[in-house]
């Protein structure tokens, strides 16, 4: 029952040990709007070791059909088997538009899949539209440190893109009952040439969805503990700029900016960060921006609602004293 033409939306629902990647649901939120407008079908693709573990977390987000394959190899991401499995599903269902979250694992997957399908791939897009004349997907790809975006389209099919986390909002759609299709047989013969030796991961707060954030820049390196303490006292999450992560003082998951995470918090307090373009693009969508910097001419000034010129350690200590730390 292979479909002849490339038609409809396809979304890859990323999961890891039963935890669904929020970005996949965010993609569904956006493309459901486009699907309703242009009367396009949405097919979600799921690779999992156990569909029952995740089906309730993904069922009512706007998919018209959910195509899944169950295999014990799909418990956590494996580059070779995931790419082959998704290649087979996509080749059978032939979605015209194929979207994946721009997470590490799905970027790995999408990069392979695009070559296997001999098609294009737009990277970590921040908008998705359809050109009503050509029906081609138009998506904005940020580049050059986040200052500039290129609106791109694909001239081959499927038209693929990875989508940046935190750009769209998931929407529950109880009115659409998706058809569940089991394609496990298509992946039965898969074998991996990779072997996972160990895995160390800690559940961290997802800072792209936090309401209050304190960002430690390079100027905080002398005493990051103080900054963390301050964040805790005001009930904010702690994040860092790229130089702090580059120095190995914080994990990349806490790095804000175009090569890290984009924030949507109501308040962000930026301490000791000069305001490099790749960083400020990550706080563009925040409500209120407060920054503290010793340099009165630091570029962060122009991206702040309140810019404090002064010694950040002095200010932070005073704040901790006042707020009862």
């Amino acid at each position: 029952m292979s479909r002849e033409e490339w038609r409809g939306f396809g979304v890859f629902i990323e999961q890891d040990e039963g935890v669904v990647e929020e970005t996949s649901l965010e993609i569904l939120g956006r493309i459901r709007e486009l699907a309703d407008k242009y009367n396009i079908k949405i097919t979600s693709f799921v690779l999992t070791d156990d569909i029952n573990r995740i089906i309730d977390k993904i069922r009512y987000y706007g998919s018209d059909e959910i195509v899944y394959a169950e295999n014990s190899l799909f418990k956590t991401y494996l580059s070779d088997v995931f790419s082959t499995a998704l290649y087979r599903l996509v080749s059978k269902y032939r979605p015209r538009y194929l979207l994946l979250p721009a997470t590490r694992n799905s970027r790995d997957l999408a990069g392979r899949l695009a070559i296997m399908l001999r098609t294009c791939l737009l990277a970590h897009v921040i908008s998705i539209d359809i050109d009503p004349e050509t029906m081609r997907m138009n998506a904005a790809v940020p580049g050059f440190g986040g200052n500039i975006a290129a609106v791109c389209e694909c001239v081959t099919m499927p038209e693929m893109a990875t989508v940046s986390p935190g750009v769209f909002t998931p929407k529950i759609r109880k009115d659409i009952e998706p058809k569940l299709i089991n394609e496990s047989d298509l992946t039965k013969d898969l074998k991996t040439s990779m072997r996972k030796i160990s895995r160390t991961s800690v559940a961290r707060p997802d800072i792209s969805r936090s309401e209050k954030i304190v960002v430690a820049g390079a100027g905080c390196i002398k005493d990051l503990e103080l900054i963390k303490r301050f964040a805790k006292i005001i009930g904010a999450e702690y994040a860092v700029t790229r130089p702090v992560a580059d120095a190995g003082l914080a994990p990349r998951d806490l790095q804000v900016g175009s090569t890290g995470i984009s924030l949507k918090s109501k308040l962000v307090i930026v301490l000791g960060a000069s305001g490099a373009p790749h960083f400020v693009s990550g706080i563009r969508d925040c409500g209120t921006v407060v920054s503290v910097n010793i340099d009165p001419d630091a570029p962060i000034k122009d991206f702040s609602d309140l810019f404090v010129v002064g010694d950040l350690y002095d200010i932070v200590k005073k704040l901790i004293d006042r707020l009862g730390g």
Partner: peptide, 21 residues
């Protein structure tokens, strides 16, 4: 297979820029 249709500048929102020393 991909084409750039146009480039857009991603302008940050206007901020209050209140300065305190």
């Amino acid at each position: 297979p991909s084409r750039v249709k146009t480039l857009i500048e991603l302008k940050p929102p206007e901020r209050m820029r209140k300065i305190i020393t």
